[in-house]
C-alpha cells in the first residue's frame, strides 16, 4: 500500500489561509490502512483545524467527507455536491489522489494534507516500512524476494558493501543489512548460486527517466 503521514496542524492552517469554507476529503483505501487519511483521521484533522483556526482568530468552516478511493473517477464523482459548497479541498489522499481530485475539480483549489512517503507494508502495530521503490523493472526474483533497491541503503545490486556490523546496516543501524537478509533467504530456499551471477548496472529508463510513466492496455480499451 501507499504509506503517508499527515502534515502538522500549523502547516495546514498556513496552507488553508485565505479560505473560509474547506472540505477535508479522506480516502478509504491505502491511507485509511496506514491511519493517515481515512474517515477517522478526517474527523481528527477537521476538529483540530476548527479549533486551531479559532485560536488564531479565524472562523474556518470545515466539512468532512471520506470517499472510497480518491484515485478513481467513479468514486471522485460522488463528492461533487460536497465539493461545490466549499471554497477549497484539503485532500487526505496520497499524491495520486490529490492530483486526481484537482484534475476533476479543476475550478477549486485542492491542497495535500498528507506527505506521501513510500510503498510499504505494516511491519507490526504502528510501524510501517518501505518495501518497493516502483523502479519499473522488478529484480526481486534474483534476490529471494528482498529488494536491494529499496532495502539496501546503498541500492547495491551486487552486495554486500562490507560495512555492515553483525546484521545491521552501516548507514542506519536501526535497520537490518538488506544483503544479510538476501543471503539468509537465498540460503533457505537453496538458491545461493544466484549470488554468483554479477548483475549488470540497472536500466533506470523504466523509472522516473523520461517523464511520468504510462501503462496502456489495449485489451482493456474500447
Amino acid at each position: 500500500m501507499i504509506v503517508a503521514h499527515r502534515k502538522s496542524i500549523p502547516e495546514l492552517i498556513e496552507i488553508l489561509s485565505g479560505h473560509n469554507k474547506v472540505l477535508v476529503l479522506g480516502c478509504g483505501t491505502c491511507v485509511t490502512v496506514c491511519l493517515a487519511g481515512g474517515q477517522r483521521e478526517v474527523g481528527i484533522i477537521a476538529s483540530a483545524l476548527r479549533m486551531a483556526s479559532k485560536l488564531r482568530g479565524r472562523a474556518l468552516e470545515v466539512e468532512e467527507l471520506t470517499i472510497e478511493r480518491q484515485c478513481d473517477n467513479v468514486f471522485i464523482e460522488t463528492a461533487a455536491e460536497t465539493v461545490e459548497r466549499n471554497d477549497a479541498i484539503l485532500s487526505l489522499g496520497c499524491g495520486a489522489g490529490v492530483q486526481a481530485i484537482a484534475e476533476r475539480y479543476s475550478h477549486k483549489p485542492v491542497y495535500a494534507g498528507l506527505d506521501t512517503t513510500f510503498i510499504g507494508i505494516l511491519e507490526e502495530r504502528g510501524i510501517w516500512t518501505e518495501k518497493c521503490s516502483a523502479c519499473g523493472a522488478c529484480v526481486l526474483h534474483n534476490y529471494g524476494g528482498i529488494c536491494p533497491i529499496t532495502q539496501c541503503a546503498k541500492r547495491l545490486l551486487n552486495g554486500p558493501c562490507g560495512g555492515s556490523r553483525e546484521d545491521r546496516c552501516e548507514v542506519r543501524d536501526d535497520r537490518p543489512c538488506a544483503w544479510q537478509l538476501i543471503y539468509q533467504r537465498l540460503k533457505k530456499i537453496d538458491q545461493l548460486d544466484r549470488l554468483r551471477q554479477i548483475q549488470p548496472p540497472k536500466d533506470w529508463a523504466h523509472s522516473l527517466d523520461g517523464g511520468p510513466r504510462v501503462i496502456i492496455r489495449e485489451d482493456h480499451r474500447i
Binding site: 500549523p10 492552517i13 479549533m51 479559532k54 485560536l55 488564531r56 482568530g57 479565524r58 472562523a59
Partner: peptide, 15 residues
C-alpha cells in the same frame, strides 16, 4: 479554554 464558544476568540498570533 479559549475554544469555548461563549469566549471571544484570541486574536493575537499564537503560532
Amino acid at each position: 479554554s479559549p475554544i469555548v464558544a461563549n469566549f471571544e476568540p484570541i486574536t493575537e498570533n499564537l503560532s
